[in-house]
Design a protein around this nucleic acid. Structure first.
Lengths: 159, 159
DNA sequence: GTGCTTGCAAAGACTTTGCAAACTT
DNA sequence: AAGTTTGCAAAGTCTTTGCAAGCAC
């Protein structure tokens, strides 16, 4: 683990810890283990992925605690939900100062790629102004197929 | 029911009927009843809504048949899925020659409003060109709150 | 008659929850 | 000590599926 990664992790943990304290919640071992596990996972993961990884760190972590923790991690901004509609929800680490991201979901290999969609900020404003609504969140998803790649099961960004 | 509505319904039914025949599927009473029920429902409905309505037309319609019919109705273009991520899927009648629609989901009352988002066509093309992907579908959803309306539980477009 | 369809109830996938024991503060 | 959190297993929600009887063609 690089020094930068370590520092980022420490900063994130500090954020989550304070979030818990502010909400009068306890800083437990399981919450800490789940937090750590997130940063050892690939970009997008499910509750089940997280359970599996967290148990490698602390075998007492249960599925229930994973499901009880994910809303907290989301609320605190550590992760963000990426709901692609089918099956279970995905989660991703929420990197600070990120532009708005759209998800490109490959119908061949089911992988999720995140691409910048800066115009969504403008779109949010447009909705706010025209409909007099207070925009809370937006999502933009594109389901696409890699032409000619279906047979080989290879994807543009390399599997 | 106006004459135009009746005609539209007849045209849609013809489309669905031909779809079934082409696929070597049977034109059954239940499928017909489910088809009819769709047009007696509000803009957005769930499988359960459809079951309830269809049973008023034909009490032999079962939940299983609803779930087995919805993919056919979607494939044939009669309805389109509107997946808002939480709970169950919604469906909407797919009116011909519609522009691309974004969904504005009110966090106060959970209602779904569809608004034109013509620029999404351009966005799809951009993705196709830049990433060399064949775009199959897109969705754009905005979760928003009506400021000051929370207490009254009233929403911008009435109810 | 052949083969798709149906309703039923059971199974499935994913998530939530009640409870008593264990832990944080 | 007080009040939160935990794991477990059971319950819940939405959807799918196996099966034998029934229907469309």
């Amino acid at each position: 683990m690089t020094k930068e990664t370590e520092e980022r992790l420490a900063r994130s943990w500090e954020i989550f810890r304070k979030f818990l304290i502010t909400k009068d919640l306890r800083v437990t071992g399981q919450r800490r283990s789940i937090f750590k596990a997130i940063f050892a996972l690939p970009d997008h993961f499910t509750a089940e992925d997280l359970l599996e990884r967290a148990r490698k760190i602390d075998e007492t972590v249960s599925r229930a605690t994973i499901y009880r923790s994910l809303p907290l991690l989301n609320e605190s901004g550590i992760v963000r939900e990426v709901d692609v509609g089918h099956d279970s929800k995905f989660y991703a680490v929420n990197r600070r100062s990120e532009n708005f991201k759209a998800q490109v979901i490959c119908v061949d290999c089911d992988k999720i790629f995140e691409v910048d969609a800066p115009f969504m900020e403008w779109y949010g404003k447009t909705v706010s102004e025209n409909l007099a609504l207070d925009v809370k969140s937006q999502r933009l998803q594109v389901h696409a197929e890699c032409p000619g790649k279906r047979e080989e099961k290879t994807c543009p960004k390399g599997n």
